[in-house]
Amino acid sequence: MHHLFGLVLAQKDLSRAGDLFSLDDAEIEGSLSEALEQIRIISSSVDYQTNDNDQAVVEICITRITTAIRETESIEKHGKALVALWESCLEHNLKPSGKDEDTPHAKIASDIMSCILQNYNRPPVMALAVPVAVKFLQRGNKELCRNMSSYLSLAAIAEVDLLADHTDVIFFLFFLWC
């Protein structure tokens, strides 16, 4: 892993996290999957929901990673790690609190979802993402579901076969919400 990414994630060093944006995308591209795995570990810790520092470090790192993936067009290379982090969010609370604020894991899920599903025209990425997207639809976070349905509509246009196995669930959830 790139030294600075390793340092920021190992020490959860918020003061150095912003420095990640001074690095060239190509310089860090090779270590993005490993950084995503470290983020998955951090976000799965028992105290993550209440640790503002860890949440801020994770948000900054995810923004840096998704930017680098877009700029280097390396979604196929890092898709598996992105989907693994995205799917790990399903193990946590995703429903907003009473004040309509997203939970920390819903924030991660939203950031990762947009990075992955904007690549609806790339079948290898969608083959990994669609089954996880359907699981998110079943979790009941309305904002995530609304955004997800838009992306899945685009995926259906580009690669209808990828959604064919999930049409029953998708139609059921559509009628449930309407």
Rank of each mutant, 00 (worst) to 15 (best):
A35T: 03
L162N: 02
P104Y: 05
L137M: 15
F171G: 00
I116D: 15
E37N: 08
S43I: 06
I157F: 14
S33D: 04
H78F: 03
K107M: 06
D100W: 08
S43G: 12
S44W: 02
P124S: 09
D165E: 12
L117K: 01
I60A: 15
A129V: 04
L128E: 01
E59K: 15
I75D: 03
K107A: 06
H78L: 00
L36M: 02
D24K: 13
H105V: 11
L9I: 11
D52R: 12
L32E: 06
L82W: 14
K80D: 03
L20V: 01
L14K: 15
E71A: 12
V83D: 11
I60K: 07
I42Y: 03
L90V: 01
I42W: 03
L154Y: 06
V83Q: 13
D111H: 12
L137I: 00
A10M: 03
S114P: 00
S110Y: 07
F175I: 01
D24V: 02
E73W: 07
S149K: 04
K99G: 14
D52T: 08
G140H: 01
R122F: 06
L162W: 01
I42R: 06
Q138I: 12
D54Q: 13
S88T: 10
A127C: 00
I60D: 13
S150K: 15
S153G: 12
A106L: 07
R40M: 05
V58Q: 09
S150F: 11
G98L: 11
E37F: 13
A68Y: 09
L154N: 09
W86H: 10
P131N: 03
A155M: 09
P96A: 12
C89V: 07
D102K: 13
A155E: 10
K142G: 04
I62K: 03
I69P: 04
E27L: 14
A81I: 03
E37R: 10
V134H: 02
K135A: 10
E87K: 07
A35Q: 04
E71R: 13
Y120P: 00
T63F: 14
L94H: 06
A35L: 05
R122T: 12
F171S: 01
N121Y: 05
K107E: 13
A164L: 14
R70M: 05
A68L: 02
Q49S: 08
V134Y: 13
Q118K: 06
F175L: 02
L154D: 12
K99L: 08
A81K: 03
L82E: 10
A17S: 15
K99S: 14
A106H: 06
L94S: 13
G30T: 05
D165C: 14
I65W: 02
I39S: 02
D47K: 07
H166S: 13
C145Q: 15
R16C: 11
W86E: 07
H2Q: 11
F21H: 08
I62L: 14
L173Q: 11
D52P: 02
A109P: 09
A68V: 08
A156P: 09
Y120E: 12
A35N: 01
I157C: 14
T50E: 14
L162H: 00
F174G: 00
E91I: 08
S15N: 05
T66K: 09
